[in-house]
Every structure is written in structure tokens, then in C-alpha cells.
Simulated assay, not measured.
Amino acid sequence: MKFHKEGYTTLAIAVLFIFIINAVADYYDAPQYAKWLIYVLSAFLFITVVQFFRSPKKVVNPQDGVILCPADGKVVVIEETEENEYFHDKRIQVSIFMSPVNVHVNRNPISGLVTFFKYHPGKFLVAWHPKSSTDNERTTVVVKDKAGREVLFRQIAGALARRIVWYVKEKDEVVQGNEFGFIKFGSRVDLFLPLGTEINVNIGDKVTGARTIIGKF
């Protein structure tokens, strides 16, 4: 387990805040019960930041024809829908909600060539809102595998998630299981898969990035 690079600034701010409030409490000789309350809250803040930005080390053996889960969380949508940004046809949508306690690293579901990438500024509706996939701040990535099959996936900001980070661009070659981005705080990742894809998860399932098999071509 390691600490993700996206959390360095947040951790530094948290440590500075903890140092200041503890120094102020000591300087003004706060009552003992108040000091203990500050110590407990300081420990809680530090542990929360560390657990949120944790980044488990994962070794993935890429598999052709397999679609791995791009994020830790819970499956909240599995449905046939119209995808109107890139494919302009019907696809199977699988959506994963990431709560604040989940690992927030995002990983490539398949290996291949990035054929499309776009960042969209937008709203910050709650991540489970039906329109969050089209109205919220988000990124859209499409990867084509060596057999010509394309998967579209979106990072979607939520009510608390105000920073989406991505590490890919068009024409990049990506490897299944490697990081393609990070979303701070509660958020969502959508997958759009070809019709006929065998779906291996159900609504309500808890899933793990780069471990759970979402489906197979």
C-alpha cells in the first residue's frame, strides 16, 4: 500500500492545520478535555486523508476479451442506453459509484489505443443522479483493443468531487490495469460496452478496480 501522489498537497495542508490548532491549544493552555478533543479530531483528520489517498499496489496480467473494473465501488447501473457523444448508437452502460471510503484510483479496463479523449466542464450533481453522466464535469475516454473493439469510459464528478485528474490523451497506448486517472472524493465511473457483451456483475455488487471482471466480449 502506498500514498497516491494526488494527495501530497492535501496531506500537507492537513498536517499544517493539525500543527496550528494543536500549537494554539498549547499556547493558550486550553482545558485538558479540549486538548484531548483536538488530539482526537487531529488523528481522525490525518487518518481520513491517508486512507482516502491510499493506492494499493496491483499486478495485472492483461487479458484479451476481458473488461476489468476501472474503479473500486458499487455497481449502480446496468442498462441498455443510447451513447450520443462518440458511438451514437445503443450500448450497455455499467456505472460504478465510488464513495469517499473507496480507493479513488481509476484504471484502464482494457489494453489498446486511445482513439478519443475529451474533458467536459459541467455541474456537480450527486453522482447517482440520472443526468450526472451527461451534465456533470467529466472526462470521456475511448480505447480500441487490437481486435478493433472499443470501450468508452467516463470519470464523472459528484457533489463533493471537485477535481478530476487524467493521465491519458489521444493516440496513447494504454495497458489494462494501469492508472488512467484519479477522482477526489465521492464520484462515479461509467462504462459503455458493445451490445452482446457478457456482463459478469449485478446491480449492488461491490467491485474492485483492476480485479473484478465487469464483462467479456
Score class of each variant (00 low, 15 high):
residue 213 I to T: 15
residue 176 Q to L: 08
residue 166 W to T: 12
residue 212 T to S: 12
residue 167 Y to Q: 11
residue 200 N to D: 13
residue 140 T to K: 10
residue 149 R to I: 12
residue 171 K to V: 08
residue 160 L to Y: 02
residue 206 K to H: 11
residue 197 T to A: 10
residue 208 T to Q: 13
residue 176 Q to H: 09
residue 172 D to S: 09
residue 137 E to P: 07
residue 184 K to P: 01
residue 144 K to G: 00
residue 172 D to V: 10
residue 122 G to I: 11
residue 163 R to Y: 03
residue 149 R to K: 10
residue 183 I to W: 02
residue 123 K to H: 12
residue 153 F to I: 06
residue 200 N to S: 14
residue 142 V to M: 06
residue 150 E to D: 01
residue 185 F to G: 00
residue 183 I to C: 05
residue 198 E to F: 00
residue 122 G to L: 12
residue 160 L to T: 04
residue 159 A to I: 06
residue 205 D to N: 14
residue 167 Y to F: 14
residue 208 T to W: 07
residue 145 D to M: 06
residue 206 K to S: 06
residue 154 R to Y: 03
residue 198 E to H: 04
residue 188 R to C: 07
residue 178 N to F: 05
residue 210 A to R: 08
residue 191 L to H: 06
residue 170 E to Y: 01
residue 144 K to I: 02
residue 181 G to H: 05
residue 126 V to F: 06
residue 189 V to Y: 07
residue 184 K to E: 05
residue 146 K to V: 02
residue 165 V to Y: 10
residue 153 F to M: 05
residue 193 L to W: 01
residue 153 F to D: 06
residue 169 K to Y: 02
residue 128 W to K: 13
residue 160 L to A: 03
residue 199 I to Q: 10
residue 194 P to W: 10
residue 184 K to I: 00
residue 156 I to Y: 04
residue 170 E to S: 09
residue 140 T to F: 00
residue 143 V to A: 06
residue 211 R to S: 13
residue 194 P to K: 09
residue 200 N to K: 15
residue 150 E to S: 06
residue 186 G to V: 00
residue 190 D to F: 04
residue 181 G to N: 08
residue 203 I to H: 07
residue 151 V to I: 14
residue 200 N to P: 02
residue 138 R to D: 11
residue 159 A to E: 12
residue 149 R to V: 12
residue 179 E to R: 12
residue 121 P to H: 15
residue 123 K to N: 12
residue 198 E to P: 03
residue 160 L to S: 04
residue 200 N to Q: 11
residue 120 H to Q: 14
residue 187 S to E: 07
residue 167 Y to A: 11
residue 181 G to I: 05
residue 158 G to H: 03
residue 204 G to H: 10
residue 153 F to S: 02
residue 212 T to H: 10
residue 131 K to P: 01
residue 211 R to D: 13
residue 147 A to F: 01
residue 168 V to W: 02
residue 182 F to I: 05
residue 137 E to I: 03
residue 123 K to W: 03
residue 137 E to N: 08
residue 174 V to Y: 03
residue 121 P to I: 09
residue 148 G to W: 06
residue 161 A to C: 03
residue 192 F to L: 13
residue 196 G to R: 11
residue 163 R to N: 12
residue 180 F to A: 09
residue 182 F to A: 03
residue 143 V to F: 01
residue 162 R to F: 00
residue 134 T to N: 08
residue 193 L to M: 05
residue 190 D to Q: 10
residue 118 K to T: 14
residue 189 V to W: 08
residue 142 V to R: 07
residue 135 D to T: 04
residue 193 L to V: 08
residue 212 T to P: 07
residue 159 A to M: 08
residue 177 G to S: 12
